[in-house]
Amino acid sequence: MSLPALKLHPEFAPTPAKPVTPAAILPMPRKSVSAGRVAQTLREAAANLLPPLITLIAVLLIWQLAAGDAAGGLPSPSRIWMESHDLILNPFFDHGGTDKGLFWHTLTSLRRVAVGFGLAAVVGIALGMLVGSSKLAHRSLDPIFQVLRTIPPLAWLPISLAALHEANPSALFVIFITAIWPIVINTAVGVRNIPQDYRNVGRVLRLSPIEHLFTILLPAATPYIFTGLRIGVGMSWLAIIASEMLLGGVGVGFFIWDQYNASRISDIVVALVWVGLVGFALDRFIALVGHIVSRGTAAN
Protein backbone atom coordinates (compact mmCIF):
# COMPACT_ATOMS: atom_id res chain seq x y z
CA MET A 1 0.00 0.00 0.00
CA SER A 2 2.81 2.42 0.80
CA LEU A 3 4.67 1.75 -2.42
CA PRO A 4 2.79 4.27 -4.62
CA ALA A 5 3.31 6.93 -1.96
CA LEU A 6 7.02 6.29 -2.05
CA LYS A 7 6.99 6.68 -5.78
CA LEU A 8 5.29 10.05 -5.50
CA HIS A 9 7.87 11.28 -3.00
CA PRO A 10 11.16 10.01 -4.20
CA GLU A 11 13.02 11.88 -1.44
CA PHE A 12 11.46 9.48 1.12
CA ALA A 13 12.40 6.35 -0.80
CA PRO A 14 14.69 4.15 1.29
CA THR A 15 18.28 4.11 0.15
CA PRO A 16 19.02 0.70 -1.30
CA ALA A 17 20.59 -1.53 1.31
CA LYS A 18 24.24 -2.29 0.82
CA PRO A 19 24.72 -5.87 -0.33
CA VAL A 20 25.80 -7.85 2.70
CA THR A 21 26.61 -11.55 2.61
CA PRO A 22 24.50 -13.59 5.03
CA ALA A 23 27.66 -15.22 6.41
CA ALA A 24 28.84 -11.85 7.62
CA ILE A 25 25.51 -11.09 9.28
CA LEU A 26 24.72 -14.36 11.03
CA PRO A 27 27.38 -14.47 13.76
CA MET A 28 26.79 -10.83 14.65
CA PRO A 29 23.38 -11.03 16.38
CA ARG A 30 24.43 -14.14 18.32
CA LYS A 31 27.40 -12.36 19.83
CA SER A 32 25.52 -9.18 20.57
CA VAL A 33 22.61 -11.10 22.11
CA SER A 34 24.76 -12.97 24.64
CA ALA A 35 26.84 -9.90 25.37
CA GLY A 36 23.64 -7.89 25.67
CA ARG A 37 22.22 -10.42 28.09
CA VAL A 38 25.26 -10.20 30.37
CA ALA A 39 25.16 -6.42 30.23
CA GLN A 40 21.43 -6.53 30.96
CA THR A 41 21.93 -8.73 34.04
CA LEU A 42 24.75 -6.50 35.28
CA ARG A 43 22.64 -3.41 34.74
CA GLU A 44 19.71 -4.94 36.64
CA ALA A 45 21.96 -6.00 39.53
CA ALA A 46 23.46 -2.52 39.67
CA ALA A 47 20.01 -0.94 39.58
CA ASN A 48 18.97 -3.08 42.53
CA LEU A 49 22.15 -2.87 44.61
CA LEU A 50 23.43 0.65 43.99
CA PRO A 51 20.63 2.72 45.58
CA PRO A 52 20.70 0.93 48.98
CA LEU A 53 24.52 0.93 48.92
CA ILE A 54 24.65 4.68 48.30
CA THR A 55 22.05 5.27 51.02
CA LEU A 56 24.12 3.20 53.43
CA ILE A 57 27.30 5.13 52.68
CA ALA A 58 25.46 8.43 53.04
CA VAL A 59 23.99 7.39 56.41
CA LEU A 60 27.41 6.27 57.67
CA LEU A 61 28.97 9.57 56.52
CA ILE A 62 26.33 11.72 58.22
CA TRP A 63 26.63 9.57 61.34
CA GLN A 64 30.41 9.92 61.33
CA LEU A 65 30.16 13.71 61.02
CA ALA A 66 27.38 14.08 63.59
CA ALA A 67 28.85 11.79 66.26
CA GLY A 68 32.30 13.43 66.35
CA ASP A 69 34.82 11.76 68.61
CA ALA A 70 33.74 13.01 71.99
CA ALA A 71 34.00 10.43 74.76
CA GLY A 72 30.68 8.94 75.85
CA GLY A 73 27.44 9.16 73.90
CA LEU A 74 26.89 7.42 70.56
CA PRO A 75 30.18 6.31 68.99
CA SER A 76 30.93 7.14 65.34
CA PRO A 77 31.22 4.34 62.74
CA SER A 78 35.01 4.63 62.71
CA ARG A 79 35.19 4.25 66.46
CA ILE A 80 32.84 1.27 66.36
CA TRP A 81 35.19 -0.36 63.87
CA MET A 82 38.21 0.43 66.08
CA GLU A 83 36.63 -0.92 69.26
CA SER A 84 34.59 -3.82 67.95
CA HIS A 85 36.22 -5.19 64.79
CA ASP A 86 37.05 -8.40 66.67
CA LEU A 87 33.37 -8.94 67.26
CA ILE A 88 32.56 -8.27 63.61
CA LEU A 89 35.35 -10.33 62.06
CA ASN A 90 35.24 -13.31 64.40
CA PRO A 91 31.73 -14.30 65.47
CA PHE A 92 32.89 -17.84 66.40
CA PHE A 93 35.17 -17.31 69.44
CA ASP A 94 34.29 -18.95 72.72
CA HIS A 95 36.20 -17.92 75.85
CA GLY A 96 33.94 -19.88 78.18
CA GLY A 97 31.01 -18.64 80.24
CA THR A 98 29.00 -15.96 78.51
CA ASP A 99 32.05 -14.54 76.72
CA LYS A 100 31.21 -15.94 73.30
CA GLY A 101 31.09 -14.72 69.71
CA LEU A 102 27.84 -13.40 68.28
CA PHE A 103 27.36 -16.60 66.30
CA TRP A 104 26.93 -18.66 69.49
CA HIS A 105 24.57 -16.14 71.04
CA THR A 106 22.53 -16.10 67.83
CA LEU A 107 22.47 -19.87 67.71
CA THR A 108 20.96 -20.01 71.21
CA SER A 109 18.36 -17.39 70.32
CA LEU A 110 17.54 -19.12 67.03
CA ARG A 111 17.15 -22.46 68.79
CA ARG A 112 14.60 -20.89 71.11
CA VAL A 113 12.80 -19.34 68.15
CA ALA A 114 12.80 -22.68 66.33
CA VAL A 115 11.14 -24.48 69.24
CA GLY A 116 8.71 -21.71 70.26
CA PHE A 117 7.80 -20.73 66.71
CA GLY A 118 7.55 -24.37 65.60
CA LEU A 119 5.02 -25.06 68.36
CA ALA A 120 3.14 -21.86 67.54
CA ALA A 121 3.00 -22.87 63.86
CA VAL A 122 1.57 -26.34 64.57
CA VAL A 123 -0.95 -25.19 67.19
CA GLY A 124 -1.74 -21.97 65.31
CA ILE A 125 -2.52 -23.65 61.98
CA ALA A 126 -4.68 -26.27 63.72
CA LEU A 127 -6.59 -23.62 65.70
CA GLY A 128 -6.93 -21.44 62.59
CA MET A 129 -8.39 -24.35 60.63
CA LEU A 130 -10.92 -24.92 63.41
CA VAL A 131 -11.87 -21.24 63.76
CA GLY A 132 -12.04 -20.86 59.96
CA SER A 133 -14.25 -23.85 59.27
CA SER A 134 -16.62 -23.88 62.26
CA LYS A 135 -18.98 -21.00 62.98
CA LEU A 136 -19.39 -22.11 66.58
CA ALA A 137 -15.62 -22.22 67.13
CA HIS A 138 -15.33 -18.81 65.52
CA ARG A 139 -17.98 -17.31 67.76
CA SER A 140 -16.58 -18.79 70.94
CA LEU A 141 -12.84 -18.35 70.34
CA ASP A 142 -12.41 -15.28 68.16
CA PRO A 143 -13.31 -12.61 70.78
CA ILE A 144 -10.80 -14.15 73.21
CA PHE A 145 -8.10 -14.23 70.54
CA GLN A 146 -8.76 -10.62 69.64
CA VAL A 147 -8.08 -9.58 73.24
CA LEU A 148 -5.11 -11.88 73.83
CA ARG A 149 -3.31 -10.88 70.66
CA THR A 150 -3.02 -7.25 71.73
CA ILE A 151 -1.00 -8.13 74.88
CA PRO A 152 2.65 -7.09 74.32
CA PRO A 153 5.13 -10.02 74.38
CA LEU A 154 7.03 -8.80 77.43
CA ALA A 155 3.87 -8.52 79.50
CA TRP A 156 3.66 -12.32 79.33
CA LEU A 157 7.15 -12.77 80.80
CA PRO A 158 6.48 -12.24 84.53
CA ILE A 159 3.47 -14.53 84.52
CA SER A 160 5.26 -17.25 82.56
CA LEU A 161 8.26 -17.00 84.94
CA ALA A 162 5.90 -17.34 87.88
CA ALA A 163 4.18 -20.34 86.32
CA LEU A 164 7.18 -22.13 84.82
CA HIS A 165 9.90 -21.09 87.30
CA GLU A 166 12.77 -21.41 84.83
CA ALA A 167 14.17 -18.99 82.28
CA ASN A 168 14.31 -21.22 79.20
CA PRO A 169 10.73 -22.52 79.17
CA SER A 170 9.54 -19.00 79.95
CA ALA A 171 11.38 -17.64 76.92
CA LEU A 172 9.85 -20.39 74.76
CA PHE A 173 6.39 -19.60 76.06
CA VAL A 174 6.79 -15.89 75.31
CA ILE A 175 7.81 -16.71 71.72
CA PHE A 176 4.94 -19.15 71.38
CA ILE A 177 2.28 -16.78 72.68
CA THR A 178 3.60 -13.91 70.55
CA ALA A 179 3.84 -15.80 67.27
CA ILE A 180 0.61 -17.78 67.46
CA TRP A 181 -1.98 -15.00 66.94
CA PRO A 182 -1.06 -13.87 63.42
CA ILE A 183 -0.82 -17.55 62.41
CA VAL A 184 -4.28 -18.38 63.83
CA ILE A 185 -5.94 -15.31 62.38
CA ASN A 186 -4.43 -15.60 58.89
CA THR A 187 -5.11 -19.33 58.67
CA ALA A 188 -8.73 -18.75 59.69
CA VAL A 189 -9.13 -16.03 57.05
CA GLY A 190 -7.56 -18.32 54.45
CA VAL A 191 -9.94 -21.17 55.27
CA ARG A 192 -12.96 -18.85 55.29
CA ASN A 193 -11.98 -17.40 51.90
CA ILE A 194 -11.85 -20.73 50.08
CA PRO A 195 -14.23 -20.33 47.11
CA GLN A 196 -17.48 -22.29 47.37
CA ASP A 197 -16.60 -23.84 44.00
CA TYR A 198 -13.61 -25.69 45.45
CA ARG A 199 -15.82 -26.99 48.25
CA ASN A 200 -18.41 -28.09 45.66
CA VAL A 201 -15.72 -29.97 43.74
CA GLY A 202 -14.86 -31.76 46.98
CA ARG A 203 -18.53 -32.55 47.61
CA VAL A 204 -19.13 -33.93 44.10
CA LEU A 205 -16.03 -36.12 44.50
CA ARG A 206 -17.32 -37.18 47.95
CA LEU A 207 -13.99 -36.49 49.63
CA SER A 208 -13.78 -37.68 53.23
CA PRO A 209 -13.03 -34.99 55.86
CA ILE A 210 -9.37 -36.04 55.92
CA GLU A 211 -9.11 -36.00 52.10
CA HIS A 212 -10.89 -32.64 52.07
CA LEU A 213 -8.35 -31.27 54.56
CA PHE A 214 -5.34 -32.36 52.51
CA THR A 215 -6.61 -31.90 48.94
CA ILE A 216 -8.67 -28.71 49.33
CA LEU A 217 -8.39 -26.90 52.69
CA LEU A 218 -4.62 -26.90 53.28
CA PRO A 219 -3.49 -26.12 49.70
CA ALA A 220 -6.12 -23.40 49.26
CA ALA A 221 -5.20 -21.76 52.58
CA THR A 222 -1.42 -22.13 52.11
CA PRO A 223 -0.75 -18.57 50.85
CA TYR A 224 -2.64 -17.15 53.86
CA ILE A 225 -0.93 -19.52 56.28
CA PHE A 226 2.48 -18.37 55.10
CA THR A 227 1.52 -14.73 55.45
CA GLY A 228 0.73 -15.55 59.09
CA LEU A 229 3.96 -17.51 59.51
CA ARG A 230 6.05 -14.62 58.16
CA ILE A 231 4.46 -12.12 60.51
CA GLY A 232 4.78 -14.67 63.31
CA VAL A 233 8.48 -15.35 62.79
CA GLY A 234 9.23 -11.63 62.75
CA MET A 235 7.30 -11.13 65.98
CA SER A 236 8.96 -14.09 67.69
CA TRP A 237 12.38 -12.63 66.81
CA LEU A 238 11.29 -9.35 68.43
CA ALA A 239 10.03 -11.24 71.48
CA ILE A 240 13.14 -13.35 72.01
CA ILE A 241 15.55 -10.41 71.95
CA ALA A 242 13.43 -8.52 74.48
CA SER A 243 12.86 -11.46 76.81
CA GLU A 244 16.53 -12.49 76.80
CA MET A 245 17.44 -9.05 78.08
CA LEU A 246 15.46 -9.82 81.20
CA LEU A 247 16.22 -13.53 81.50
CA GLY A 248 20.02 -13.44 81.22
CA GLY A 249 22.30 -16.37 80.41
CA VAL A 250 23.04 -16.71 76.70
CA GLY A 251 21.41 -15.22 73.62
CA VAL A 252 21.67 -12.08 71.54
CA GLY A 253 19.26 -10.17 73.78
CA PHE A 254 21.31 -10.99 76.83
CA PHE A 255 24.50 -10.02 74.96
CA ILE A 256 23.10 -6.56 74.24
CA TRP A 257 22.08 -6.04 77.87
CA ASP A 258 25.42 -7.35 79.11
CA GLN A 259 27.36 -4.94 76.88
CA TYR A 260 25.15 -2.10 78.06
CA ASN A 261 26.05 -2.90 81.67
CA ALA A 262 29.71 -2.95 80.65
CA SER A 263 29.27 0.38 78.80
CA ARG A 264 30.47 -1.14 75.51
CA ILE A 265 28.17 0.83 73.25
CA SER A 266 30.11 -0.09 70.08
CA ASP A 267 29.42 -3.78 70.67
CA ILE A 268 25.71 -3.03 71.03
CA VAL A 269 25.63 -1.30 67.65
CA VAL A 270 27.31 -4.31 66.06
CA ALA A 271 24.83 -6.64 67.76
CA LEU A 272 21.89 -4.53 66.55
CA VAL A 273 23.02 -4.76 62.93
CA TRP A 274 23.49 -8.51 63.44
CA VAL A 275 19.98 -8.87 64.91
CA GLY A 276 18.51 -6.99 61.96
CA LEU A 277 20.31 -9.16 59.41
CA VAL A 278 19.25 -12.39 61.12
CA GLY A 279 15.63 -11.18 61.33
CA PHE A 280 15.73 -10.34 57.63
CA ALA A 281 17.16 -13.79 56.86
CA LEU A 282 14.40 -15.47 58.92
CA ASP A 283 11.71 -13.59 57.00
CA ARG A 284 13.22 -14.48 53.62
CA PHE A 285 13.61 -18.09 54.72
CA ILE A 286 9.90 -18.46 55.59
CA ALA A 287 8.96 -16.69 52.35
CA LEU A 288 11.12 -19.14 50.41
CA VAL A 289 9.58 -22.15 52.15
CA GLY A 290 6.13 -20.71 51.40
CA HIS A 291 7.04 -20.25 47.76
CA ILE A 292 8.17 -23.87 47.48
CA VAL A 293 5.29 -25.39 49.48
CA SER A 294 2.56 -23.43 47.72
CA ARG A 295 4.14 -24.19 44.32
CA GLY A 296 4.52 -20.51 43.56
CA THR A 297 1.06 -19.29 44.52
CA ALA A 298 2.12 -17.61 47.82
CA ALA A 299 3.19 -13.99 47.44
CA ASN A 300 6.89 -13.41 47.91
Binding site: D197, Y198, N200, V201, R203, R206, R295, T297
Partner: peptide, 17 residues
Protein backbone atom coordinates in the same frame (compact mmCIF):
# COMPACT_ATOMS: atom_id res chain seq x y z
CA UNK B 1 -23.61 -34.80 45.63
CA UNK B 2 -21.74 -37.63 43.99
CA UNK B 3 -19.51 -38.46 41.03
CA UNK B 4 -22.33 -40.23 39.16
CA UNK B 5 -23.73 -36.70 38.62
CA UNK B 6 -20.51 -34.89 37.65
CA UNK B 7 -20.79 -31.12 37.19
CA UNK B 8 -18.92 -28.87 34.77
CA UNK B 9 -19.05 -25.56 36.60
CA UNK B 10 -19.51 -22.23 34.86
CA UNK B 11 -16.15 -20.91 36.08
CA UNK B 12 -14.27 -24.21 35.54
CA UNK B 13 -13.45 -24.62 39.29
CA UNK B 14 -10.13 -26.30 38.63
CA UNK B 15 -7.90 -26.43 41.68
CA UNK B 16 -5.19 -23.86 40.86
CA UNK B 17 -2.37 -25.66 42.68
Amino acid sequence: PGPERAVVFQNHSLLPW
